[in-house]
Amino acid sequence: MSTFEIVMVAIVAAICGMGSVLDEGQTHRPLIACTLIGLVLGDVKTGIILGGTLELMALGWMNVGASMAPDAALASVVSTILVIVGHQSIGAGIAVAIPIAAAGQVLTIFVRTITVFFQHLADKYAESSNFKGIELCHFIALLLQGLRVALPAVLVAVAAETGLVTDLLNAIPDVVTRGLQIAGGFIVVVGYAMVINMMSAKYLMPFFFLGFVVAAFTGINLVGFGIVGAVLAVLYIQLNPKYNAKSVAVEEIDEL
């Protein structure tokens, strides 16, 4: 890898890491992060496919309240580097992505704990109404979140070329990589379960079963499902007596 490529990997990794804490532009999602790393390393197609595969697995990974999800940013960046630079299969990339996501989660929790220091520093700056100081605290903390992904990414990128990493990955027995690939097919349900749990509305579960059965017996694609789902939602709201209580009462009075 050229120095230029390594610098680009570091920049993209930092953007993904910052995206991971910000959760705004979604640069930390596998679909985006893997694609960008693929682009930088000159094999965008592999990046996109790996990104799509990991994205489905990570569908339910979300930060809600104070709880931290497994870290998609580090997992996407490192696994894409390993697959492209280390000449690994997509399957191997998925296999390494999950442990890395767990490691990334630990790292982000670590940084979020250190940031408590900046919180107190910001308090101090507020005392002297130092606007610049508070802004500095904010953006240094953000930068740390970028470095948290950029540093491991550069380390892996450099190591991946030495062949050591490749040898290690190649040493994994076939039964493990094949088993991991098979597991990849159904590990996605963990993500689905997280999303469904978050909705946590039992009385709306019939819509889940409807979606399941319609998908099982028809060939509608996801766009179609989105449209049908939206139509169902509108109908439900329009017909629900809960939202029409007022007009019904008025009609009854009119009838009297």
Partner: peptide, 9 residues
């Protein structure tokens, strides 16, 4: 509703 429907699929 939309979310659950798509999740089912």
């Amino acid at each position: 509703i939309l979310g659950l429907f798509v999740m089912g699929a």
